[in-house]
């Protein structure tokens, strides 16, 4: 066997995602001719960009062998607390908003890391507890009223566009400048995972934590990095969300963990850790976003969407698990 055979490439999880995305697009396109257009691409890009940012952080955590269900709560805190402080104290500075959002993410990331890496609690339960802690605490101490008058400097970003496309119908579609953030993050994380020892260390501890320790990786430090980095980009993503919505809502994002984890798993990341690629996650997010945002176009009523998304996720996770099972049982070379 030399290099990867064509068959391996064609049956990889990434390619399966591509097939499904193409097939789904054709189905929706054949039902609704408006679908196959530049406008759809722009709308979809905008719709999935925040999920994409969250998914990147979560993917790192899962690859390292953990899981983090606290990020929606972290995101809510990271968007609401800075805006609240700015509005109450008359601060009008974009850097403050983003900076504080990232710091909040870092702090809670550090808390997650401490609980999972140092105290060694099961990550799911630990982060669930942290989620409740943050969400309850923030609503109790900072209030739960949505803030719709964002500070001017922050709100202004929502009107900065990379480009604007005018459809034949005359409607205009603009892509926000914030879209650069997930793009840069994706490239950065992909390079980090592939070409730095830190990135390889994340895979190593996800594959076999004990072996990683013996080999000389600082397991605790890598976990701190993973959870804190995930926290930081969650903060960043949350502020983007806030700007895109042009309002700071302290609970809208709660419950989004399901979609994000699903997109990651559909994208080929193994929930047990050690396996996962940025490109797979991007495809997974696009696929789930496509289903979530365009089923209406295909004639599926809005109230059946959750079910259809659930079905896709069940299929996606089953395929990934069955593949892993098959590899485990296959003949060894």
């Amino acid at each position: 066997m030399k290099n990867k055979s064509i068959k391996d490439v064609l049956t990889s999880t990434e390619m399966i995602n591509v097939y499904i995305i193409v097939a789904l697009s054709m189905v929706i396109g054949s039902i609704n001719s408006n679908f196959l257009s530049v406008a759809t691409v722009i709308t979809l890009s905008r719709a999935i960009m925040v999920t994409m940012i969250f998914a990147l952080g979560e993917m790192l955590v899962i690859v390292s062998g953990g899981i983090d269900v606290s990020f929606p709560a972290v995101a809510c805190a990271a968007l609401f607390v800075p805006i609240k402080l700015m509005v109450d104290n008359g601060i009008n500075n974009v850097w403050f908003a983003f900076g504080l959002a990232i710091i909040i993410g870092l702090v809670f990331g550090a808390l997650n890391a401490t609980l999972t890496a140092v105290v060694k609690l099961p990550p799911l339960i630990a982060t669930l507890g942290v989620s409740s802690l943050i969400n309850g605490g923030m609503l109790a101490f900072f209030g739960s009223k949505e803030i719709s008058n964002l500070p001017k400097a922050v709100d202004a970003i929502s009107q900065k566009f990379l480009f604007t496309y005018t459809a034949p119908t005359g409607a205009t579609y603009s892509l926000t400048v914030l879209f650069l953030i997930p793009v840069i993050l994706c490239i950065g994380v992909a390079l980090m995972l592939k070409y730095t020892m830190l990135g390889r260390g994340i895979y190593a501890i996800g594959g076999d934590q004990n072996a990683a320790r013996i080999a000389g990786f600082n397991v605790v430090r890598i976990k701190y990095f993973v959870y804190m980095f995930a926290g930081a980009i969650t903060g960043l993503g949350a502020m983007c969300y806030c700007i895109l919505c042009r309002t700071a809502n302290p609970k809208n994002l709660m419950g989004s963990e399901m979609m994000v984890i699903a997109a990651i798993v559909v994208g080929g990341t193994r929930i047990s850790g050690g396996h996962g690629k940025v490109i797979g996650t991007v495809l997974g997010v696009v696929l789930v976003g496509l289903i979530q945002n365009n089923l209406i176009m295909a004639g599926v009523p809005a109230y059946w969407q959750k079910f259809v998304v659930g079905l896709v996720i069940v299929l996606g996770t089953s395929i990934t698990s069955l593949k892993a099972k098959k590899i485990a049982q296959s003949a060894k070379v």
């Binding site: 609980l115 989620s131 409740s132 969400n135 309850g136 605490g137 609503l139 109790a140 739960s144």
Partner: peptide, 14 residues
């Protein structure tokens, strides 16, 4: 509002 309860539950769990 019941939010304090969520907070305390989370803290208790941890």
């Amino acid at each position: 509002t019941g939010n304090m309860k969520t907070f305390v539950y989370g803290a208790l769990l941890i």
